[in-house]
Design a binder for these strands. Structure first.
Lengths: 184, 184
DNA sequence: TTTTAACTATAAAGGTCGTTCTATCTACCT
DNA sequence: AGGTAGATAGAACGACCTTTATAGTTAAAA
């Protein structure tokens, strides 16, 4: 009982700090200190810093999809727009500063790391998500359309760093609407 | 020797390594070693690592705008499309792995750094660039349109990490065309 | 030829990093 | 009550980090 509380605190604190300052910009000392936990408690739950990063990414991915699933009614008239809106809300509430998965891909690329695999997996899933949506709506060029929506989401995330989530989302929704209208 | 060849080698090597492994993921030792240069040569030309990062960013920004200016005829029929195409070529040739400026903003955010200022400055300039384009073409909603094109470029860069520059650029060009057609 | 500046190699200072070790303490299980 | 597993603080590890110090080399200008 008390065991999982500590572990969850660690994951929470680590996710926040990693997101704020990058994986390489945060030391275990800081995580341990802010989580009010002893060094060996961390190593009791995670085999290494890399392993902690992995678990953080898994937790964040789960959260992201819970968030999307909660806001997107798949059988709605325009699930595409709902998805873009939901992504925007996610950015506004939890993710005002770039994308953790993209950062993981960049930071740990070409090192034969589980971390990169997890992060790339998340992005693949996003593309597949839009593919399923497009297929359900009987769109042609399913893959292209899916990638275009994914591009919109990625662009929104980047723009959030520059102009804030609300404005960025407004723009991507506007473009998503045009995109839905233009495709058959 | 116009400007020190050693200094330029250092900037070259540093830009490449920073881009490949991130600012925090590369040590001065590695830069020095790959540039075939002594420690004190680096510190003779740059006052600190942060200063080196700053100079690298300035150089990269200059290069980016040279590249864009060389490929975009401002008075063309569709300078928007040309800009998106040029950005795509830039990605394909030099920038297959995320955006150095966005990374700098994320890595050095909230630290009262010159680095973040430079990186954000580049992004502001990009938005202003599209604003000027929109204005010249007599578009209404100049700022919104500019941000939408910026969003497309940012999305293209992110997607390059996932599906490669060519596909990503194809998608953004397609969307840019729709956007140009839809606006007045 | 002497001076000047850039560059060289090496080492040390002073930190921080991730990780491991030791030794103590608490709390629950049977 | 004794045993066990989890958590604790703190030190120690070696490796690496950025930066500075020291001293010797090169090459071209004065």
């Amino acid at each position: 009982m008390s065991r999982s509380v500590k572990k969850e605190t660690l994951l929470e604190v680590a996710e926040h700090l990693f997101y704020e300052h990058g994986f390489r910009g945060v030391g275990l000392k800081q995580i341990i200190s802010e989580a009010n936990v002893a060094t060996m408690t961390l190593y009791n739950h995670f085999s290494s810093k890399d392993n902690l990063v992995e678990e953080v990414l898994k937790q964040r991915e789960e959260r992201y999809w819970s968030y999307l699933d909660a806001h997107v009614e798949m059988d709605s008239d325009s699930p595409f727009i709902l998805a873009v809106e939901a992504h925007g809300r996610w950015l506004n509430e939890l993710s005002y500063k770039g994308d953790m998965f993209l950062r993981a891909i960049e930071d740990y690329a070409g090192m034969d790391n589980e971390i990169e695999t997890i992060a790339r997996g998340h992005k693949s899933k996003l593309r597949r998500y839009f593919q399923q949506l497009a297929q359900k709506k009987g769109k042609t060029n399913v893959k292209d359309l899916a990638d275009q929506f994914t591009l919109l989401l990625e662009g929104t995330t980047s723009m959030t760093t520059l102009i804030g989530a609300e404005k960025a989302t407004d723009h991507s929704i506007a473009m998503a609407r045009i995109l839905v209208r233009q495709t058959s």
